[in-house]
Simulated scan of single mutants.
Amino acid sequence: MHVALIDYDSGNLHSAEKAFQKMGRDLDARIDVTSDPEIAARADRIVLPGDGAFPACRAALGEVDGMAEALREAVLKRGVPFIGICVGMQMLATTGHEYRRTAGLDWIAGEVEAIDAPGLKVPHMGWNDLVIDRPHPVLEGISTGDHAYFVHSWQFRVADPAHRLAHVDYGQPVTAVVGRDNIVGTQFHPEKSQAVGLRLIANFLNWRP
């Protein structure tokens, strides 16, 4: 199995690489950290991390010549399993509103909006309990009450409730996991979420959508 971890200067690649390597050993998975669209296009699994502001991450992805096209070809046309992490998940949305209106990939319809949590600190940072909204193979073995690690000030509001797989309560329901077809995304960092995060990574690597 060949897993492409996309490098566009906007993600915590080292910890993500280590987590995917650990869970991929039994599958003989090769984890390539890459900014080469040709490698991404040939991958069996694609991981898109993201740390920072939505507009900066979206611009940085667009500046890697040929990468957006390679991802569309692999994910939307060939059906390669894909996971976005943190801002990598948010970029799946139609539009982001951080600082300015920015077009997302529009792979899962919705808007990225500021967290509105009166009386609570923003950014939403630290551990929070997941609430599973609907079963999904990537969430197998993960239950409501299991906790994951978050660092974010913006949230993905999906247009279709069926695309929200899990949320957390933070003054309001805040999307934690999205998915449709061969695409999933996590607002939390699985590479920092200990057993829950490693289980999700293993599930993703074994997923056959």
Score class of each variant (00 low, 15 high):
A159Y: 03
L76E: 13
L5T: 01
S143N: 13
I183R: 02
V151K: 04
P209H: 10
I83E: 07
A60Q: 11
I132N: 08
R157N: 04
G145P: 01
V174H: 10
T102S: 11
E191I: 06
G66Y: 11
G141L: 10
H136M: 09
E191L: 07
A19M: 01
G96M: 03
A159R: 14
H14Y: 12
F156I: 07
Y99E: 09
T95F: 10
R199W: 04
S35P: 05
A4G: 01
D129Q: 14
I201H: 01
K121P: 00
I115P: 10
Q155W: 03
R100F: 08
F188P: 00
A148S: 12
R58L: 12
R157E: 01
V47C: 09
V87C: 04
Y8K: 09
V178K: 04
Q194Y: 07
R72M: 06
D65T: 15
A74N: 10
L105I: 05
N182E: 03
Q21I: 03
R25C: 02
R45I: 02
F20S: 06
C57W: 06
I115S: 04
A166M: 05
S15A: 08
L13K: 07
K18L: 12
D146H: 10
S153E: 08
E69I: 07
I46R: 06
I83H: 01
S153V: 11
P49A: 12
L165T: 05
I115L: 15
L48A: 10
P37S: 01
V158W: 02
A166W: 00
I31F: 13
W207P: 02
G66S: 11
P137M: 11
G145Y: 01
D146N: 14
Y149Q: 09
E111N: 15
K121F: 03
V80E: 10
G179L: 04
A59Y: 12
D26F: 08
A53S: 15
